[in-house]
């Protein structure tokens, strides 16, 4: 599969500070690629270099084979960008915002006008097309920003925290629209703090920390890399007097944490831990109400690799 994005030794230094340190990877055409990392890890600097906002200090990056420095216009031509902030013009109407985006991306008038109406319809904003964007809600502004990014039917869509701080309905609309664009063939480069969002949407994920890529793989492969984050979650009948210390004595259990009325027992050997829990329950005459084995979540992988706790939940397997 050809590369949509290809980075080779891409580096950005600000004086003595190395914000991005010789990163190399590729994003294949047609995939949704997640780019995760803690604050200050180098995500925004990387996207800023790829989109032409910041000049790299070293290394190269190509978008569909076009060098971002030597063939900047060609590289930018087939790209759409959604920034973390909805950078729409509040004084212009929804339609005027889309038309302006089309004009600076050289979309011919007839095509631009038809596409603008199509996008407003798709994002549920047709009835507000002539309304000034300044009066729109945050979710509506974000939908306008995404529509502006799609006006030139880009082959590659950069999304920087597309759903941050939005209501559930806007989140769903935006995620579905991105997936639909991807199904039509658009490559998506997604930066997000929402690990569950990345887990659900991305074909592959790269994790950046201190300016270096520390992991890059499919979400399920990343989860497999940390056996120690496997666990068994158990809840006992209400009047059972059980504590973390006692459960921690079960062979193969490495650590126990209490989550509400449940206990989570971390282990590298879940079957052995399960047996140990059953033995413990029988010997103490306690009834088990619920028991589940949990695989490592992407959040566990992230914390394990970056040492940073993130908001945004993990999944169960």
């Amino acid at each position: 599969m050809p590369s949509a994005v290809e980075l080779s030794g891409l580096t950005k230094r600000y004086g003595e500070i190395v914000a991005v340190d010789h990163i190399s990877f590729e994003v294949k055409e047609g995939e949704i690629f997640g780019f995760l990392g803690p604050n200050g890890a180098g995500k925004t600097t990387t996207i800023s270099m790829l989109t032409g906002l910041v000049t790299p200090t070293e290394g190269t990056a190509k978008i569909f084979g076009h060098d971002i420095r030597k063939e900047a216009k060609e590289a930018k031509r087939c790209v759409g960008i959604v920034w973390e902030e909805s950078n729409v013009y509040p004084e212009l109407s929804a339609l005027e915002n889309l038309n302006f985006a089309g004009e600076i991306y050289h979309v011919v008038k007839r095509q631009r006008e038809a596409k603008a109406l199509e996008l407003l319809e798709k994002f549920g904003l047709s009835e507000r097309k002539d309304g000034k964007v300044g009066g729109f809600s945050k979710g509506m502004k974000r939908r306008i920003a995404i529509s502006m990014a799609l006006i030139n039917s880009p082959r590659l869509l950069f999304l920087d925290e597309p759903t941050a701080g939005l209501d559930v309905q806007s989140n769903i609309v935006i995620r579905e629209a991105v997936k639909e664009e991807n199904r039509k063939g658009t490559t998506v480069f997604l930066t997000t703090h929402n690990i569950e969002e990345a887990n659900q949407m991305c074909h592959r994920i790269a994790i950046i920390n201190h300016g270096k890529i520390i992991a890059i793989d499919r979400p399920e492969n990343l989860r497999r890399t940390i056996k120690s984050a496997q666990s068994v979650q158990v809840s006992f009948e209400e009047d059972a007097e059980t504590g973390e210390a006692e459960l921690g004595k079960i062979p193969s259990v490495r650590r126990v944490i209490k989550e509400g009325h449940r206990f989570r027992l971390f282990t590298e050997d879940p079957p052995a831990a399960l047996e140990g829990i059953w033995d413990y329950a029988r010997s103490h005459g306690i009834r088990i109400l619920e028991i589940n084995t949990l695989g490592p979540t992407l959040e566990d992988v992230f914390i394990n690799l970056t040492g940073t706790a993130q908001a945004g939940a993990g999944g169960r397997s």
Binding site: T51, K73, K76, I81, E85, V88, P90, A101, M148
Partner: peptide, 14 residues
Amino acid sequence: RIKAYDRLVCAPIS
């Protein structure tokens, strides 16, 4: 301030 200038810089124009 509203990052709209970034949109112009990132567009395929000189």
